[in-house]
């Protein structure tokens, strides 16, 4: 057909202006966060229902979780600094703050892993009792989401190295930051559920 306007090989950006595109990306991210919220809402409601069961037992949360919490809160702060540095146009500062964020994020994952190990050493496994099952599932699914955030940070490095992060134009740092803060907030929420409910 002669009406073909372009090869299908490259995606067409339907956004009319860069501002449009920025808006679309942000909205897309927020909508995705809505989906993730529903996932954890489903887990939470399952948790509440299951905690009414006769075999529900309390679980001593490993103290290392407080370190996890400190790490993830710290990582949100550093990423916020990175984002602001980027907005000021200071790429070197952006790079070092986001590197710090990636390091703190990885530290969080390591700290979570340490929490699992410490439970295992105490003889508590995934299948030990319902609360331990939920503990491993919730922290595990959360860790996967944080890992996705780390991957996004690494992608940011790649973009920065390739010179494709342009202050004032690229919105990727903000998007990553929104996602990262969300996952951090999600951890606080999960910690509250795990320590306050049942």
């Amino acid at each position: 057909m002669s009406s073909t306007t372009a090869g299908a090989a490259a995606p067409i950006d339907a956004a009319r202006t860069p501002a449009d595109r920025r808006h679309i990306n942000r909205l897309g991210l927020l909508v995705a966060l809505g989906g993730i919220t529903m996932l954890f809402a489903a887990f939470t409601s399952a948790y509440i229902v299951r905690s009414g069961g006769g075999d529900w037992a309390a679980l001593e949360l490993p103290p290392v979780l407080w370190m996890s919490t400190a790490l993830i809160v710290g990582s949100s702060l550093t990423l916020e600094l990175a984002r602001r540095a980027f907005q000021r146009g200071s790429l070197p500062s952006f790079r070092s703050w986001s590197a710090a964020t990636a390091a703190l994020g990885t530290g969080f994952l390591a700290s979570q892993y340490a929490a699992w190990l410490s439970l295992n050493e105490a003889g508590i496994y995934l299948q030990s009792h319902p609360k331990s099952s939920f503990f491993f599932v919730l922290t595990g699914v959360h860790a996967v989401h944080l890992l996705a955030g780390v991957v996004a940070l690494l992608a940011l490095f790649g973009l920065a190295a390739a010179g494709r992060l342009v202050p004032g134009r690229s919105d990727a740092p903000t998007l990553t930051a929104i996602y990262w803060h969300f996952v951090g907030g999600l951890w606080i929420y999960l910690l509250a559920v795990l320590s306050l409910l049942g």
């Binding site: 989906g35 529903m38 489903a42 995934l126 099952s133």
Partner: peptide, 25 residues
Amino acid sequence: GLLSFPALAAGALLLTFDRSLGTSF
């Protein structure tokens, strides 16, 4: 779809654990 399918994903994950890893959800 966005709001309802995650519930199935959560359920399917928990059921998989029950089937394969000995949990009791």
